[in-house]
C-alpha cells in the first residue's frame, strides 16, 4: 500500500527546519518512515514528521490511531519495527539513555504509589535522575513551586485529586529540566478548572523555550495551545500544519449564525426566498445560514436586507470552522480520494 502522506510530511519537514531551527541544531523530534506493528496490525504505518525546537505541537487522532505508540517510541519505551526516530538528533533506539535525559514523559495514566507523600515521590525521582545534595532540593523546590504543589507536599499521593495528580506528574517530568516534553493525553479526565491550569502551565513551558509534543482528543484546546497540529489516522499522518490554516475555510461560502427575537421559523422562511442564502439549521433563538459568495460586501448586503425585510436581529456573526470539522473533513477527503488535501 502506498503512503500518500509522506509527501506532506516531508514538505513540512523542510519548511519548518529552515524557518525555525538554528542551522546546526537538529530538530527536537525527527521521525522518518517509522512503523510499528503488533501481530501483523500496523499501529504506526510508515510515518514521517519533524518538530522544530521550541514549538508546541498537538498530536490528534481517534483512539487506536497510533498516537500513544508513536509517543512511547519517542520516549524510548517501545521500539519501531522499521524506520527511525530521533530526539534532539539522538536515535531513540540506539541511545535510549541519552534520549531520556532530553525528554520529559507524561503518560496518559499517571502512576501513583501507595504509602508515599508528594515530596517523597518527587524526592525518589530526583534521586533516580541522579541529583544529589543541594541541587536535588533546589530542583524539587522549583518544580513544586511551578506546579503549585507546595501546600500538598506532605499529602499521600493516593489522596490527591486527578488534577493534582496530573500536576504532580508534570512536576516529575520537569525535574531534570528536559528540552522536550512528550505529554500523552494530559488533560484526559480533568475538570474544567484543572484543564485551564494545565493549559496555563504548558503555555509557560512553551514560552520558556521547551518543545512540547502533546496529544489530546479535545481539539479546541489544542488549537489554542499549539503552534501546529499533526493529525494521525490508522497509523498514518494525514495532516501537518498550523491550527489557523485549518480553521480558515477554503470554500467560497461562509457560515453565519443569526439570533432573532422572532420565532426561528421566520428565518427559515426568509432564507428560502433570499438569493445567495441557504438555510443550514435552526437553533432555539435563530439559526445558521450559508452565504455565497463570502465576500464582506455580500455579507453586509445580506444583513441590510434582513433588517429591511423586518427580521428582528439580536446577533449576527460569522462562524469560524471548528478544528473538529476540519479533522472530519480531512478524514472525509481521504475516504473519497485516498489522499488528503494539501493544506
Amino acid at each position: 500500500m502506498s503512503d500518500p502522506d509522506n509527501n506532506t510530511a516531508y514538505a513540512s519537514k523542510e519548511e519548518h527546519t529552515e524557518a525555525i531551527s538554528p542551522p546546526l541544531q537538529p530538530p527536537a523530534i525527527e521521525v522518518t518512515n517509522l512503523a510499528r506493528w503488533f501481530n501483523g496490525i500496523h499501529a504506526v504505518n510508515n510515518i514521517s514528521f519533524v518538530i522544530p525546537r521550541g514549538q508546541v505541537v498537538g498530536f490528534v487522532g481517534a483512539n487506536g490511531a497510533g498516537k500513544t505508540t508513536t509517543m512511547r517510541i519517542l520516549a524510548t519505551l517501545d521500539y519501531p519495527n522499521s524506520g527511525e526516530a530521533k530526539v534532539c538528533g539522538i536515535n531513540v533506539v540506539e541511545y535510549p539513555a541519552e534520549v531520556r535525559g532530553k525528554i520529559g514523559w507524561m503518560p496518559d495514566h499517571y502512576g501513583t504509589y501507595r504509602n508515599m507523600t508528594v515530596i517523597e515521590y518527587l524526592d525518589f525521582f530526583a534521586r533516580a535522575l541522579g541529583y544529589k545534595g543541594q541541587e536535588r532540593i533546589d530542583r524539587i523546590v522549583e518544580v513544586m513551586e511551578f506546579t503549585d504543589l507546595t501546600p500538598l507536599s506532605d499529602r499521600l499521593i493516593d489522596k490527591l485529586s486527578k488534577g493534582m495528580g496530573q500536576r504532580l506528574c508534570l512536576g516529575r517530568a520537569l525535574l531534570h529540566d528536559p528540552e522536550v516534553l512528550i505529554l500523552d493525553e494530559p488533560a484526559a479526565g480533568l475538570d474544567p478548572k484543572a484543564r485551564v491550569e494545565l493549559k496555563h502551565l504548558i503555555r509557560i513551558l512553551a514560552e520558556d523555550g521547551k518543545t512540547v509534543f502533546i496529544s489530546s482528543h479535545i481539539l479546541s484546546e489544542l488549537g489554542e495551545m499549539c503552534d501546529s497540529l499533526l493529525f494521525i489516522n490508522q497509523g498514518k499522518i494525514i495532516h501537518h500544519g498550523d491550527a489557523d490554516s485549518l480553521t480558515k475555510s477554503n470554500s467560497s461560502s461562509c457560515l453565519v449564525e443569526v439570533l432573532l427575537s422572532d420565532p426561528p421559523e421566520k428565518l427559515r422562511e426568509w432564507a428560502m426566498l433570499a438569493p445567495g442564502v441557504t438555510f443550514v439549521d435552526s437553533t432555539k433563538t435563530g439559526g445558521r445560514i450559508e452565504i455565497e459568495p463570502a465576500e464582506d460586501e455580500d455579507i453586509a448586503k445580506i444583513l441590510r436586507r434582513m433588517i429591511t425585510d423586518g427580521l428582528n436581529i439580536t446577533d449576527f456573526h460569522q462562524e469560524e470552522r471548528k478544528l473538529e470539522d476540519a479533522f472530519i473533513e480531512i478524514l472525509g477527503e481521504i475516504e473519497e480520494s485516498g489522499t488528503p488535501a494539501a493544506k
Binding site: 512511547r72 519505551l77 531520556r100 503518560p107 502512576g111 504509589y113 533516580a128 535522575l129
Partner: peptide, 15 residues
C-alpha cells in the same frame, strides 16, 4: 510497578 503504571516512569530515570 506495572499495575500502577510506574515502571515506565522509572525507566525514564537513570535507574
Amino acid at each position: 510497578e506495572y499495575q500502577l503504571n510506574t515502571m515506565d516512569l522509572i525507566h525514564m530515570t537513570k535507574l
